[in-house]
């Protein structure tokens, strides 16, 4: 995996012995998502996408992945809906949709 996934099995420490030594904890340890921050979500139109990967390059959260052959996929667990990808896409292949909260 090129990026970390949420640790669904993580149990918060209950007693002192459960805490780490010092202030050192495994890197890339995610226990919650950022999805609730989002009021709009970017949606990629695969027909228009030229796979230039500009959106991947300039995403501040790095949530656009080329996990599907020839195409890009957005990790909606960690996308905050900033809209940079839609704004910068030269093919206009990304549009923002309201989350409808």
């Amino acid at each position: 995996m090129n990026y970390p996934l949420r640790q669904n099995s993580f149990k918060p420490p209950e007693k002192l012995a459960d805490y780490p030594v010092g202030t050192a904890f495994p890197a890339g340890h995610l226990v919650d998502t950022n999805a609730s921050w989002r009021s709009r979500r970017p949606v990629i139109d695969a027909e228009k996408c030229s796979n230039c990967r500009i959106c991947w390059l300039i995403c501040p959260d790095g949530v656009i992945h080329n996990t599907t052959p020839g195409g890009l996929e957005i990790d909606y667990d960690y996308c905050k809906g900033c809209g940079i990808c839609a704004k910068e896409c030269r093919q206009n292949a990304i549009h923002m949709e309201n989350e409808g909260i």
Partner: peptide, 21 residues
């Protein structure tokens, strides 16, 4: 010590801990 950065087992050090922890 295990309280260190380690290239084989990457760690986050000197982190923030909120009121709960």
């Amino acid at each position: 010590t295990v309280n260190k950065m380690d290239l084989d087992h990457p760690m986050s050090l000197a982190f923030t801990a909120g009121p709960a922890y």
